[in-house]
Design a binder for these strands. Structure first.
Lengths: 354, 354
DNA sequence: CTATGTTTCGTGTACGTACACAAAAATAGT
DNA sequence: ACTATTTTTGTGTACGTACACGAAACATAG
């Protein structure tokens, strides 16, 4: 019982020989260039099909000096959160993988807290002639303005991390926010006992990022609508991301009524973890987002119970590859590519890969 | 703020020019062939380092007619469980990806329930001249005998799915059994209440596969040794894998004393799920292994609560790639590559990828 | 100093495809 | 029938590397 797959290792030469034409003609047929008699074209095409000919990508790239230039527009990894390092790594990795195929990838960083930098970088990109763009459309209005210009110039673009469905992107690659909130609720349903208190915590400065979090909250609440339970759900919004602000806000929220479980809707969960630890409240169950070093610390210490993570690195990787496949093989790309929703605990984080 | 990485697009020609030698000499240095004066070699090497020269894989493969033949020895996907389809897919995928790089992959299937077929296929492989072998060493004795011959012939081999540490494999790529059992115990600790009953179920026919399951059980018990809890843990071994046998065995086990949670140590969890459903015992929590269609069915129906999965497809993929990287780039391969331990629920299975 | 061997180096061709240019064939115009 | 023009086809060179072969440089012995 063996599984052989003899790939016919023939090239244009063999095709030319069988068709009694020169390789030049075969080449014209293959790349459907003009200047081939209809009869000849048909004969060649038939032989190509007969032989199940697959052009040699190596030789093709070697001989073709056509280059593909891609641009990337993402937030710079800030000191406050290193989240964007992960997608960046994925992007770099993909870029390295297709470098030999004649693809260049240039990365532009904007400041997550400053919309004007987004627009500035976007304009720089438009000035140069890129054939494809990968971007994180954090700011809705600015992103729409930018992508509109891209569409006018017929430059395909791919969204990562967050989506704007109406923008006409080639694809969206990123988390399924609603579903991940739903999952969080399910996990919590296992942690919680009757009559206990759940606190949802949104920590975010920029208003635009906020709807990102709200979407998760929606999913979260939808779960309990579908599975009614005898628990109390409260929530608190924290608009200052520094530790002191978070601390005082949390203190206030927790002193009002006791809380048994906290659900942090983004990667800032470590900040909450720090507070719980310092306040001697580590018995409060904690669940949040993203495989960041600081979060893993608290996971190890059993302050955080679960982390939900959606392969940020792979998002970057897939984003670049989607553009590449589209632009070179004219491949059909799925409009929405949701990443897996990974559950990380202190038992499996060691084996986790972004 | 831009991130440019101008990969010097220079080749041997440029190196030759700068070093005042011919490309032939550069070639000799690059492939450290003999016949180049020490002084010249040093000069060329320095320029190579200076330019951070990266050979063009395309051109290299095109010019080199050297082929790489790999063999794969894995169980055939049986009717009883389609598990091995997943690794097979990964293997095929990897094979397709490196086909253009001059790699052929031939797959040999053996019968999981018949050791002699393993040996027979293994001997076929040894007759041909493969440069690398990927195998699932299901049967310890037979595998050791086979790999000993491989070592004698200096053929590197990689294990997937299960490991034999003493065999001298290039790498092991597969699950961390102990740790996944440990994780299962942790998950169950969230599901269980004080004083409840947990039942461990091992379903397996072949004795050799059994230690596979025992390893998970070890991890499971280790968790409760580290985190003592007021629960009862019992276990039952089922040596007949058909539904009727499982059913009667389970019936007996459950009638003795009530059970609140069942942990099935392999992918046969659907069989248990079917029984629980039919017996009207769906309230019993159920946790088991592997992303198989039949398991997902019961996950959807809330009969199964969690599935643990270790990316079987990726195991196959990485296995082939490990051999490839080792044999072509002389890359250093990690001896043990544990796969992520993924937790699958009805909220995230849709986005899961093996 | 020649003859011979050995080490070191340069040149040419090949891999399979792309593309520019030239050659040939077919068609049109007078 | 003979250009002029267009369509169709063939040939050559290039891409960056591998490798075989032979030339040049150097060393050794007689």
């Amino acid at each position: 019982m063996k599984d052989t797959k003899e790939a016919a290792l023939v090239g244009v030469k063999e095709i030319a020989r069988r068709a009694n034409v020169s390789i030049g003609t075969v080449d014209r047929v293959l790349n459907n260039r003009t200047g081939v008699a209809e009869k000849t074209r048909e004969k060649v095409l038939e032989i190509i099909k007969d032989l199940d000919y697959q052009p040699n990508i190596m030789a093709r790239r070697l001989a073709s000096k056509r280059l593909l230039h891609l641009a990337v527009l993402i937030p710079a990894a800030s000191g406050e959160t290193g989240y964007w390092n992960a997608p960046l790594n994925g992007i770099r990795q993909a870029a390295a993988a297709i470098r030999d195929f004649g693809v260049t990838v240039e990365i532009y960083f904007f400041d997550q807290n400053d919309k004007t930098t987004f627009t500035a970088r976007a304009n720089e990109i438009l000035k140069k002639e890129y054939q494809g763009i990968l971007l994180a459309p954090m700011f809705e209005e600015e992103s729409l303005s930018f992508t509109k210009k891209c569409r006018a110039k017929k430059i395909p673009f791919v969204f990562i991390n967050s989506d704007i469905e109406t923008a006409g992107s080639l694809s969206y690659i990123g988390p399924d926010l609603y579903q991940s909130g739903y999952l969080a609720a399910h996990l919590i349903s296992y942690l919680v006992r009757e009559g206990q208190q759940v606190l949802i915590v949104n920590i975010s400065r920029e208003m635009d990022l906020h709807h990102h979090l709200l979407r998760k909250e929606e999913g979260f609440r939808a779960y309990y609508k579908a599975h009614p339970a005898d628990i109390q759900i409260r929530k608190t919004d924290i608009r200052q991301t520094d530790y002191k602000s978070v601390k005082s806000k949390l203190h206030k929220a927790l002193s009002k009524t006791p809380v048994d479980i906290i659900f942090v809707t983004n990667s800032r969960v470590a900040t909450v973890g720090r507070y719980l630890e310092e306040a001697g409240l580590a018995h409060i169950k904690l669940i949040g987002y993203d495989f960041l070093a600081e979060n893993i610390d608290y996971l190890k210490k059993s302050v955080i119970d679960f982390l939900i993570c959606q392969k940020p690195q792979e998002q970057g990787h897939k984003g670049i590859m989607a553009l590449y496949d589209h632009l070179t093989h004219a491949a059909v790309i799925e409009r929405q590519q949701y990443m897996p929703i990974d559950i990380i605990t202190r038992e499996n984080y060691l084996n986790y890969r972004n």
